[in-house]
């Protein structure tokens, strides 16, 4: 049986006036049912574009998938028709988006919006049936008194509740893959933890494959089985969660880990990675992280690093990956 999702050498470019931006530049990873993959990196590293590319919803006009394969249950999603793709969106692959405050349509009730996936994917028309299904989904995500909430409008709900609604909408049609694109960034810290717990619960209960996009490694540590670190449109390191946290092999991963604030750590100042993420329209020769890398050597500035494997499932794209793991 093929893996749930296999992304092979995915390339997504944005054609802008000032040049071609290689937002996603040869991304490869795979995911099994019941697994959670954490996709981590700074903003602009290509995490979100990777996710959008999987369901082929890029900003109109400028964005284009120029190469690679997205195999979902063995079928290449880049080959199927737009109509087939649409039927997969929201039914087999569903999304939890970043900002619940703006992701729900302000002029339709919660119930109305939640009925849509059922109507469009399962052809459900019966009002009683729809209502029952919606209430069931709302109960599942822990919305109190769901019977009443169905008639409410988005602006009457708190941010946390709205994100629960978005989550409920995502799981209504029993998907096999759930993509959560920074689902907690826009929320209060206390609510963040609740939503993460909810996503984890839902994932376990339905045995979903889940991709969790975040720029926060501490979130990954709590929720994921494996992690892929992205930098400048590429995965620079990928591996099982304990491997990565125990022996990070890419200096960028190490920097990200140093940037996690920890109670009890004796440091005067919070560490932040110096410099700016590179401009993906003008990538430097050699390793794109070289200008910011604390462990940079001469070779890095002119020799592009290839992927090196450590064991069967840990890989890193760094010339010094071997020695990094040893230290």
């Amino acid at each position: 049986m093929p893996p749930l999702l296999e992304v092979k050498n995915l390339q997504t470019h944005f054609i802008t006036r000032s040049g071609v931006a290689r937002a996603v530049d040869g991304v490869t990873f795979s995911l099994e049912r019941g697994q959670t993959l954490g996709l981590v990196g700074e903003s602009g590293s290509g995490k979100s574009v990777t996710c959008s590319s999987i369901v082929r919803l890029l900003p109109k006009g400028s964005g284009r998938i120029v190469g690679g394969e997205v195999l979902f249950e063995g079928r290449n999603l880049l080959d199927i028709s737009e109509n087939e793709m649409r039927r997969i969106r929201g039914s087999q692959i569903s999304f939890v988006t970043q900002d619940p405050m703006t992701s729900l349509n302000p002029v339709y009730s919660i119930g109305n919006q939640m009925e849509e996936p059922l109507r469009y994917h399962q052809g459900m028309r019966n009002h009683g049936q729809l209502h029952a299904k919606v209430v069931e989904a709302l109960t599942q995500v822990g919305i109190p008194s769901p019977e009443r909430r169905v008639k409410d409008y988005p602006h009457q709900l708190s941010g946390g509740q709205r994100q629960r609604v978005v989550t409920a909408m995502a799981i209504e049609c029993q998907p096999s893959l759930l993509i959560a694109d920074e689902p907690t960034t826009a929320l209060d810290v206390t609510v963040q933890i609740q939503i993460l717990r909810l996503l984890k619960d839902v994932q376990k209960e339905l045995n979903l494959g889940m991709i969790l996009v975040t720029h926060d490694l501490s979130v990954i540590a709590r929720t994921c089985d494996k992690v892929a670190v992205m930098y400048a449109g590429r995965i620079v390191e990928e591996g099982p969660i304990d491997e990565i946290f125990a022996r990070p092999r890419h200096p960028y991963t190490r920097s990200l880990m140093r940037a996690i604030p920890q109670i009890g750590r004796k440091e005067d100042r919070l560490y932040s990675i110096p410099g700016q993420p590179p401009d993906v329209r003008r990538l430097p020769q050699g390793c794109p992280f070289a200008p910011r890398c604390p462990d940079v050597i001469d070779r890095c500035t002119h020799e592009a690093p290839t992927e090196q494997f450590f064991g069967s499932n840990h890989r890193a794209r760094c010339l010094r990956a071997e020695e990094m793991g040893a230290s």
Binding site: V55, R86, G90, S94, T97, T102, S103, N105, E116, P117
Partner: peptide
């Protein structure tokens, strides 16, 4: 919300 509507299929 238009993006989410499209994501919902």
């Amino acid at each position: 919300y238009i993006r989410l509507a499209r994501l919902k299929g």
